[in-house]
Simulated scan of single mutants.
Amino acid sequence: MIIKGIPARRTENFGSLIEYIRSVVEYVRTHGDRALIELTKKYDGVEIESIRLDSTELEKCIEGLSDVIRRSIDMLYTHLYNIHSTILPRDIRIDLNGVSMGISWRSIERIGIYVPSGYKSYPSTLLMAGIPAIVAGVREVYISSPPMRNGCVNPAIAYGAVKIGAKEVYRVGGPHAIAAMAYGTESVVKVNKIVGPGSIYVQAAKHVVREVVDIDGIEGPTELVIIADENADHRKIALNMKSQAEHSKDTFIVLLTFSHKVIENVERELSSDANHTYYLALVRDIDEAIDIANNLAPEHLSLYVTNPFNYLDRIRNAGAVTLGSEPSAMVDYLGPDHILPTNGWAKTRGVLTVYDFLKPIAIFYSSKGIASEILSAARVLAEYEGFQLHSQSMGVDNDV
């Protein structure tokens, strides 16, 4: 379906689901494994006897996975590992005004990765979430993904889990999987942070459990905004839009252009797709298009314009930006990462990186050469705030 104009809001909003999701989360928190088994049968139609897949079961799940898929996962693992290794920050030491301090980075100890499966399966998501965690030094990685009819998780997901050295894998999907990793059950380990995209129900669950566990953000459903000028190839634009709509029926796909010809040609290319909604908007010029895009703050933004680097600095709010004729699918598989903020969260968050799995710790180790006026200023402010002993303690080792 094609809608002419700029969408007033996202097609889906999980606000209406919150109370229902709270009841699911509370049911899992109260009843543990029993709730997970019941909800898996109810929502996935699969009867499971246990939550955790042991190593023998994982290997059995992997059986039959083609060598082509295995080699592809291996190759992309190395590619993405190298990318995230270049992003890894180093400890900082600062010597300034006679004081020595710094920042030391430490990894989160235990994370949970949610890997969607069902309408589509996403071993690539496991790589995109797991690799930056491993590079950051996370010691314990736990994975949860919906079960197949045979009780296994998707074979490529199982292979990826072994590849990244996951400590445990759970055959549970949906909001109940999020609840389990947030609170822990008899079988599921409580984690410090949950990452990964998913359905609107999964994202609503992440929103609810952030009261007790950190999350990476709200990721899903898929979003794409395209800005195109009169020189853009309408066939490539349409294919990019269709490729992102491939995720599900609730994707958010928008074209902004100031070319009548482009919008007419793209409409013709999309007219045969009645299963997805596409927004086509004719705008005044590229300035208006950029303003609208920044306000929408999409997951993916593609710039099909001449000299796209000239406009890159003006893009303030987007999870990922592709330039020229590069399709957004490049980010989905080649990186830096496809776990990206949706629902307007790109106004405050960005792409998942090693930083999502690291904590900066402040280090202060010497004030022996501190400038007297700096120390005096610090003590004056402490006393102004009513902390006399703070002021006194700062003067003890500095002959004050």
Rank of each mutant, 00 (worst) to 15 (best):
residue 312 L to G: 14
residue 358 L to T: 08
residue 107 S to W: 14
residue 67 D to Q: 08
residue 38 E to I: 12
residue 265 N to V: 05
residue 88 L to F: 05
residue 274 A to T: 15
residue 254 V to D: 10
residue 302 S to W: 06
residue 188 V to L: 01
residue 124 S to F: 02
residue 292 I to P: 15
residue 31 H to F: 13
residue 364 F to H: 12
residue 308 P to K: 04
residue 226 I to F: 01
residue 221 P to Y: 09
residue 258 F to L: 00
residue 148 M to E: 13
residue 220 G to I: 13
residue 359 K to Q: 07
residue 354 V to G: 01
residue 178 I to R: 00
residue 169 V to P: 04
residue 332 D to W: 10
residue 126 L to K: 01
residue 376 S to A: 04
residue 123 P to H: 06
residue 65 L to D: 09
residue 161 A to T: 07
residue 337 D to K: 00
residue 161 A to N: 04
residue 335 G to H: 08
residue 202 V to M: 02
residue 15 G to E: 14
residue 363 I to G: 13
residue 35 A to F: 02
residue 28 V to K: 02
residue 242 K to L: 03
residue 243 S to W: 07
residue 183 Y to F: 08
residue 205 A to C: 09
residue 183 Y to L: 02
residue 355 Y to H: 07
residue 157 I to L: 05
residue 124 S to E: 08
residue 348 T to I: 15
residue 290 I to N: 07
residue 70 R to A: 04
residue 313 D to G: 12
residue 339 I to Q: 00
residue 315 I to S: 04
residue 236 K to I: 13
residue 169 V to R: 01
residue 41 K to L: 14
residue 167 K to Q: 05
residue 203 Q to N: 14
residue 264 E to K: 10
residue 149 R to A: 12
residue 14 F to R: 04
residue 333 Y to V: 10
residue 37 I to H: 06
residue 185 T to C: 01
residue 202 V to T: 11
residue 76 L to P: 04
residue 131 I to C: 04
residue 10 R to E: 10
residue 126 L to Y: 03
residue 311 Y to V: 15
residue 86 T to W: 11
residue 199 S to Q: 05
residue 190 K to H: 02
residue 218 I to E: 03
residue 308 P to N: 10
residue 283 V to T: 08
residue 167 K to A: 03
residue 321 V to H: 01
residue 259 S to I: 13
residue 182 A to M: 05
residue 96 L to H: 15
residue 293 A to P: 10
residue 49 E to S: 15
residue 198 G to C: 09
residue 200 I to N: 02
residue 346 A to G: 12
residue 361 I to T: 13
residue 27 Y to K: 13
residue 11 T to I: 14
residue 312 L to E: 07
residue 121 S to P: 03
residue 198 G to Q: 07
residue 187 S to L: 02
residue 66 S to T: 09
residue 81 Y to V: 05
residue 361 I to P: 01
residue 265 N to G: 09
residue 154 N to R: 00
residue 388 Q to L: 01
residue 129 A to Q: 04
residue 141 V to A: 08
residue 154 N to T: 02
residue 114 Y to F: 10
residue 250 D to F: 14
residue 376 S to T: 14
residue 396 V to D: 00
residue 251 T to Q: 06
residue 352 L to Q: 00
residue 169 V to Y: 02
residue 210 R to M: 06
residue 247 H to A: 12
residue 172 V to E: 00
residue 138 V to C: 06
residue 265 N to D: 10
residue 8 A to Q: 15
residue 344 G to D: 11
residue 250 D to M: 04
residue 76 L to A: 13
residue 299 E to V: 11
residue 185 T to K: 00
residue 277 T to E: 04
residue 382 A to H: 05
residue 180 A to I: 09
residue 218 I to V: 14
residue 203 Q to D: 09
residue 105 W to L: 12
residue 273 D to E: 10
residue 327 P to V: 11
residue 196 G to K: 00
residue 134 I to C: 00
residue 283 V to C: 07
residue 279 Y to S: 05
residue 334 L to W: 00
residue 65 L to T: 11
residue 206 K to W: 11
residue 23 S to H: 06
residue 44 D to F: 05
residue 229 D to V: 01
residue 303 L to V: 09
residue 71 R to P: 11
residue 198 G to Y: 10
residue 281 A to T: 13
residue 214 D to R: 01
